[in-house]
Design a protein around this nucleic acid. Sequence first.
DNA 1: CAGTATCCTTCCAGATACTG
DNA 2: CAGTATCTGGAAGGATACTG
Lengths: 217, 217
Amino acid sequence: MKHQRRNYGQYCGLAASLDLIGERWTLLIIRELLAGPCRYNVLLANLPGIGTNLLADRLKFLTECGIIRQRAREGSKLRDYELTEQGEGLREAVLALARWGLGTLEQPAPGDIVRPRWAALAIEAMIDPSAAGPDEQYEFRIDDEVFHVSVLDGQVTVAQGKATTEHALTLTTDSLTFVKIGAGLLNPLEATLTNHLVIDGDEDAIVRCSRLLGLMA
Amino acid sequence: MKHQRRNYGQYCGLAASLDLIGERWTLLIIRELLAGPCRYNVLLANLPGIGTNLLADRLKFLTECGIIRQRAREGSKLRDYELTEQGEGLREAVLALARWGLGTLEQPAPGDIVRPRWAALAIEAMIDPSAAGPDEQYEFRIDDEVFHVSVLDGQVTVAQGKATTEHALTLTTDSLTFVKIGAGLLNPLEATLTNHLVIDGDEDAIVRCSRLLGLMA
DNA sequence: CAGTATCCTTCCAGATACTG
DNA sequence: CAGTATCTGGAAGGATACTG
């Protein structure tokens, strides 16, 4: 018989959350999966410092709780982990935490690492849905990965991969630069002047995109 | 020299959050303080299972990080802990987690405890700001504590204590009942019929309040 | 590739005693 | 009252080696 996990024993929404996703590493695993399905070894590579046993533990527990599931890739023996609908429900909470944490970030410490999808998380956290303009897409090229922001009927979403339609602008940068901008430690204009950030596209679209990301203050 | 806290070493908003408030008990302490300033021994009493040394550790760390501060009560030697502005910024994240966790709650396990302010957190998590109606207040009496919901200029807030104006309705219940309602495990009508929930007030206000809390589905 | 198994270290729970 | 200090068993976390 499996030993009962430690839990707070409180009948409270927050305590219930923390019983499920409050352990070390768990929310970082969720963060990775919020960007899309992912294989075991890719998770392992994107979470430097986690032990392979600990990753396996967490994945097993999250699967038992119905927060993630495994799915076979068609035409391949490889399996991906992906969020269930319940797991997807954590997006707002993760974004709220990321938004708060962005505000506390200072200059990176030596040894700190950055990944493109964390920059994508920063994009998503920065978005002000009430600033959504007309339907269009923006393509973000961060290091070697591509993401796109899509405005559709006032709904804004961020996803992995190229834009699915013509995109109104292309933004090219590295993940460190982008996270610094999100943290308010670097001015987009300054980044552009030093060539760490290159925006290519219609001028009006640039303004709309900046507004959407709260960069006009 | 103080030993450096364990941290993820990731330059990412979420990881930065978790470095500060990801340890066990920390968010539950924040939850208590979100309801208002609180003394050491009250925190200790409301967080059954935490050790006095662990609580002191957490409070010290949160103070060093600028998330909470201590304040002397006027005319008394007693000191309260309270959130700083930065700590107050965690409200949205805590509410998002509580909202998600409420959805996962099942019937309470034997030994689970409930507290009025956790029910107040459930109220706050349930609120749909877009459903805000005309300015008015609702008073909630849960066990032996009183909270009020205030709608003002389309902004909805929940606070400890009695309503500050005439209130459009008074709701009396116990914390267990209220959390169950928030978790969708108990129908408000059923709770009323069994006398676990008593609502006293104008009929239209009851409808508006129910809408605000998403109880009309 | 996707995990187990192992070993060791650190952290936490709970109790209790003590201080200003 | 508001903590600090100390101790102990047990659980969780981390590093590495190994397996189907």
